[in-house]
C-alpha cells in the first residue's frame, strides 16, 4: 500500500518537475514547482520522517517559493514577458541540453543499479523500531530514531557546530541580499514604466 502511494507521488513529482522546466509562463512554472515540493514532502512522510516533511512544506515550499513569487511579481511584465519567454526558450532548439540530460540520467541509473543488487528496501517507521534499540545504546539515550526529540538532541549535541555554521550562513545571506538589492540613486526605479524613468532622469540631471 505504501509502495503504491510512493509510486503515485513519484510520478506526480516527475511530471511537475518536467512542466516547471518547460513552462513558458513564469507563474505556471512556480506553481508546478510548489506541487513538486509538496509531493516530495509527502515522500518524506512516507519515509517516516515527519519533521523533514513539515520543514519541507513550511520552509521550502512556503518561504522560498513565496520569495520566488514575490520576485516574479516584481519583474513580470505580464503578456510582454510571456512573449519574450517563448522567444527565449523553445523545445526544438533545446536539443543539446535534452541529449545531455538523458545521457546523464542513463549514466546515473547505471551507477545506482550496480552496487545495489542486494535489494535492501526502506522500511517504514513502525517496522524498524526493534533493531534501533541495539545501536541506539552507543548513541546517547535517543529514545527512537527519526523522532524530533532524538534529532534535536543530536543537533545540539555532536552537531552543534553545524547549527552555528548554518546560522552564520543565513545571517550573511541576509546581509548580502539586502545590500545587493538596495536601490542606489543611479538605478532606474524598477516599478516605474520606461517613460517615467526618462522623466526622473531628466529631473535628476536638472537638479544635480
Amino acid at each position: 500500500m505504501i509502495e503504491a502511494i510512493f509510486m503515485i507521488t513519484a510520478i506526480v513529482c516527475l511530471i511537475s518537475a518536467l512542466l516547471t522546466v518547460t513552462a513558458h509562463n513564469a507563474v505556471h512554472a512556480l506553481l508546478y514547482l510548489v506541487t513538486m515540493m509538496i509531493a516530495i514532502a509527502l515522500i518524506f512522510f512516507l519515509f517516516g520522517s515527519p519533521f523533514a516533511a513539515a520543514l519541507q512544506i513550511i520552509v521550502y515550499a512556503g518561504a522560498v517559493m513565496v520569495l520566488f513569487v514575490f520576485v516574479t511579481m516584481m519583474l513580470h511584465q505580464g503578456e510582454k514577458s510571456n512573449l519574450d519567454e517563448k522567444a527565449l526558450f523553445s523545445l526544438k532548439n533545446a536539443k543539446g541540453p535534452l541529449l545531455l540530460a538523458t545521457i546523464l540520467i542513463a549514466e546515473l541509473l547505471m551507477i545506482s543499479v550496480q552496487p545495489l543488487e542486494m535489494n535492501s528496501s526502506l522500511v517504514p517507521l513502525s517496522a524498524i523500531s526493534n533493531e534501533a534499540e541495539q545501536d541506539s545504546a552507543q548513541r546517547d539515550n535517543t529514545s527512537q530514531p527519526n523522532s524530533v526529540k532524538s534529532l534535536a538532541i543530536q543537533l545540539y549535541g555532536p552537531y552543534r557546530l553545524l547549527v552555528i555554521i548554518a546560522a552564520m550562513l543565513l545571517l550573511s545571506a541576509l546581509i548580502a541580499a539586502i545590500h545587493i538589492a538596495r536601490k542606489t540613486p543611479k538605478h532606474v526605479d524598477v516599478d516605474l514604466s520606461p517613460e517615467e524613468t526618462q522623466l526622473a532622469n531628466k529631473q535628476q540631471k536638472a537638479n544635480s
Binding site: 543539446g96 541540453p97 545531455l100 545521457i103 546523464l104 549514466e107 546515473l108 547505471m110 551507477i111
Partner: peptide, 16 residues
C-alpha cells in the same frame, strides 16, 4: 554550465 555537465558526464563515463 554546459561544459561543467559535459565534464561530469565524461567523468562518470570514465568511472563506468
Amino acid at each position: 554550465s554546459a561544459s561543467l555537465v559535459i565534464f561530469c558526464v565524461l567523468a562518470i563515463a570514465w568511472g563506468l
